[in-house]
Nucleic acid binder design. Structure first.
Ligand SMILES: [Mn+2]
Ligand SMILES: [Mn+2]
Ligand SMILES: [Zn+2]
Ligand SMILES: [Zn+2]
Lengths: 142, 142
DNA sequence: CCAATTATTGGACTTTGTCTAATGATTTCA
DNA sequence: TGAAATCATTAGACAAAGTCCAATAATTGG
């Protein structure tokens, strides 16, 4: 909710804090996600970092996003069968997903309780719980 | 949990009940899903219906699965960024997802309560809530 | 039986994402 | 400093999931 302003220098610090070498391309990709504070697809990020002038390849965008996920700088949101969204918000939260527009909105997990979860099968551990509330504008056909 | 035995005639009845013309291909595709009672990808279904002899094309499998979803005979489970799973269980339920094996297991929604969901943005309606508990076998590396 | 409708098909096509081998940039440290 | 090793980026080939199309096949209704 808070519209924190990020600079490229913030990105360098953030990358270092996560053990990622801050190259020019990585800084731009991080900046695209964190300055917008939005859920973006690889495609959208590729477009954003190349608007002024072409400077980052498709391969690097994918390499970098996968690296960021691995280093827990960002997380993936899997909700659309055709593409992954990347989320700069790694704080525990869930999502509204507008199935018409494809737009994602955060739901704070703090408010929020789940009870009656069955115990896990033996020998497994939980990685996380994803909750997606699928919504649709009133009056728009299915 | 119950291992109900389905016949092809059950499939014909089921298809008719959902307003779907029961063709040979549609019966086989429905039978693949309902007799196994498993979460299957289009790919797996294509393989199953063509094991004895080739009789159903890729286009028909996709056409048919989309039709089944539209007619609410089955539902989609979106959990793997690279493929959709189809679920013959349309009863309200959620999923364990083993991120290592890719296997899905049902969680009954009856047990199960969510509280503290924020109210919806104005002018939208809920389509459904998907809850995915991502699990991993103990001791397998991330 | 014919005409209209509905369903199936092979294969071209699109999109998302990965892989590879070559190149470019940075470190390391003698 | 300067060469070698390491790390990062790249173009473009490739792969997999899924859609689209125009032709054919099957079914239906009169
Ligand atoms: Mn630049
Ligand atoms: Mn047959
Ligand atoms: Zn989010
Ligand atoms: Zn299920």
């Amino acid at each position: 909710m808070n519209a924190k302003m990020y600079t490229r220098d913030d990105m360098i610090e953030l990358l270092r804090k996560h053990g990622i070498n801050p190259t020019h391309q990585r800084i731009e990709i991080a900046y695209a996600l964190f300055s917008k504070q939005e859920h973006l697809s690889a495609d959208q990020i590729l477009a954003i970092v190349n608007t002024k002038h072409s400077e980052t390849s498709k391969a690097t965008v994918y390499n970098t996003l996968n690296l960021f996920v691995e280093k827990k700088l960002i997380r993936e949101v899997i909700v659309d069968p055709s593409k992954v969204f990347y989320d700069p918000n790694t704080y525990e939260h869930h999502h509204f997903y507008d199935v018409v527009s494809g737009h994602l909105t955060d739901i704070d997990a703090a408010d929020f309780k789940i009870s009656g979860l069955p115990q896990l099968p033996a020998g497994v551990i939980t990685e996380g719980i994803d909750i997606i509330v699928r919504i649709r504008p009133q009056g728009v056909a299915a």
